[in-house]
Amino acid sequence: MKFGFPLFPESASTLAPQVDAIYFFGLGVAAFFSTLIACLIFYLAIRYRRRSEDEVGKREKAAMWLEIAWSIIPLGILLFMFAWGAKVYFEARRPPGDAVEYFVTGKQWMWKFQHPEGQREINHLHVPVGQPIQLKMTSEDVIHSFFVPAFRIKMDVLPGRYTTVWFEATKTGTFRLFCAEYCGAEHSRMGGSITVMEPRDYEQWLARADSATGPLALAGAQLFEAKTCGTCHRPDSNLLAPILHGLFGEEVTLASGDKVLVDENYLRESILDPKATVVSGYEAKAVMPTFVGQLSEEELVELISYIKSLGDAASHGETPEESAG
């Protein structure tokens, strides 16, 4: 973090130059038109200043071509800015396929992080440089917003659902993390940092860092046992409940006839409020209790990671549950 009197933020992610480029274009457009208008006003207001008390202006002639010109030209520039901005936004909102998943929980007034290998951090996150990283984020209370100016990324963090933001850091160092959505008394102190390290240093850091639970999917597998989820959610459970193997990323048909994609938000809802979205065919058997209040956000993340790690029922043997045993 630099001190002094900077006028432009540090740039430390693959997204940053893209955002800066379109920002400079927008700034150029704004500066050009503001200057144009200001110069025209000064020129015209002086050139045509009133020279005698009873003077009046000339009668205006309609100029349709002018009206059309100053509608169409701005419209063209605006649509160009829209298209460019939409392209950058689209990429910023869609993590690349090889992005490693980290989890973030916001609460008044701190940030909690879970690494894929289970290490936990508060307010300060360590990540490797040059690796796309996606953050699955949720909040325990109010809306927060995850903002790292040097990466030019920001995304709201909501209670009751997961939102995603991703970045690929391009240089090592420590960068500021802010909460950008007003969240109560200590909003301005809900900050922290992202430390970007060389992959080798990151590995060493990971090894040193305490991981009480082990990898998320493994911790989830233990939780799955502890909460006796397997009683019903087993391939051989006589179809008491949907089989979870290979479920993630698939579409399921609900009792209502709607189709939904099985993603983190769907799994989360199905754990906390199982009756909200019952899969077609299981209406009569829907006996699963709610787990509201019984699972922390971190534990939910572990369970979801476990379910995501489950391959097809056929390749059942590959799951961490087995490999852990």
Partner: peptide
């Protein structure tokens, strides 16, 4: 014109809520 910049999605990512 700064409103136009804010409506530009790629810029808003960074400057929203600032």
């Amino acid at each position: 014109l700064t409103g136009v910049m804010l409506s530009t999605l790629g810029i808003d990512i960074h400057v929203h809520d600032t």
